[in-house]
């Protein structure tokens, strides 16, 4: 069959202009000495990467990012399965209503999510309730690292657990009814059914694996919520703050006048992040059963 290659041209032009060209230029920038203040480029090889990899601020950002990525993705995966089990075992009407409610966070702008989960919104009332209302004399101190890391992870799961729910519901629906019925006939309890049939099916499903991969790739570029926390914690002008993910660190280096626009280092960081993205996407393409049909 003759392929209408012309149909691909507009999309390819955009892919080259908006993606490949800029990425290529970023890569070149990362190999040179360059700043907005002094805009002459001198090639320096992998010097930027070397200095980056020996920079403790960068490593700290990597650690923070990994903590948040794996914490968030793990939590939303678990909560998503849990929600899916609840949803699939309830009636049609409840299912429609509750899944509509559950997906609302996905529609909310990430920066607004940052505001939603700020100490001054969410925890304002909660703390008032705890401190005065219940007279517990205690409150949630959002300035404690454990607390704010947890909150960031929780807010990410708040947004994305419903995605895992949607995908898991589809997987559960695709489990052959006979399998479940056979298990029931043999007297399996709900837990056994979950353990022996549902859960293995979920884990083995390419759809779930692909969703995990894509969420991981997305979480690596996590920006808005940690960015807002820099403000809540008053650390927005300090490099290497406890909530600096790699993206936030790049933003700080870029926007702060203190740092003489170290564009080369920023792009080097971006290219490292890109390597994670590209690897994940390659895995997605391999694992997805239908994308290349």
């Amino acid at each position: 069959m003759r392929v209408p290659y012309l149909f691909l041209v507009p999309a390819l032009v955009i892919i080259f202009l908006a993606l490949i060209g800029p990425v290529f230029q970023s890569f070149l920038l990362s190999l040179s000495e360059f700043s907005l203040v002094n805009p002459s480029q001198t090639p320096v090889g992998f010097q930027n990467y070397i200095s980056l990899l020996s920079d403790s601020v960068f490593w700290r950002a990597i650690q923070v990012t990994l903590l948040l990525v794996f914490g968030s993705v793990f939590l939303e995966f678990i909560v998503g399965i849990f929600l899916a089990l609840l949803i699939t075992s309830s009636g049609q009407r409840a299912r429609t209503w509750f899944s509509s409610i559950f997906v609302i966070p996905i529609a909310i702008a990430p920066i607004v999510t940052g505001v939603l989960w700020s100490p001054n919104s969410f925890f304002d009332d909660l703390n008032t309730l705890l401190y005065y209302g219940l007279s517990l004399g205690t409150y949630i101190d959002t300035s404690k690292p454990f607390t704010y890391y947890s909150i960031i992870v929780l807010s990410d799961a708040w947004i994305w657990a419903p995605l895992f729910m949607l995908v898991t519901v589809a997987v559960i629906r695709s489990i052959p009814k006979e399998q479940i019925e056979a298990a029931e006939v043999m007297g399996a309890s709900s837990f056994t059914k979950f353990q022996k049939i549902t859960f293995p099916a979920i884990i083995a499903s390419p759809a779930i694996v692909v969703t995990l991969l894509l969420r991981t790739a997305d979480a690596f570029r996590m920006f808005e919520v940690p960015y807002s926390w820099n403000f809540w914690l008053g650390q927005d002008s300090q490099l290497g703050a406890p909530v600096d993910t790699v993206s936030v660190l790049m933003w700080k280096m870029f926007s702060s006048t203190l740092y003489d626009f170290p564009i080369a280092q920023i792009t080097a960081m971006a290219i490292l992040l890109l390597a994670v993205t590209l690897t994940t996407c390659a895995l997605v393409l391999r694992r997805s059963s239908s994308l290349l049909d």
Partner: peptide
């Protein structure tokens, strides 16, 4: 297209 969807904006932002 997958990469475009997933890419960190910083990888293209400076150009």
């Amino acid at each position: 297209l997958l990469a475009m969807r997933t890419i960190s904006p910083f990888a293209v932002l400076l150009p």
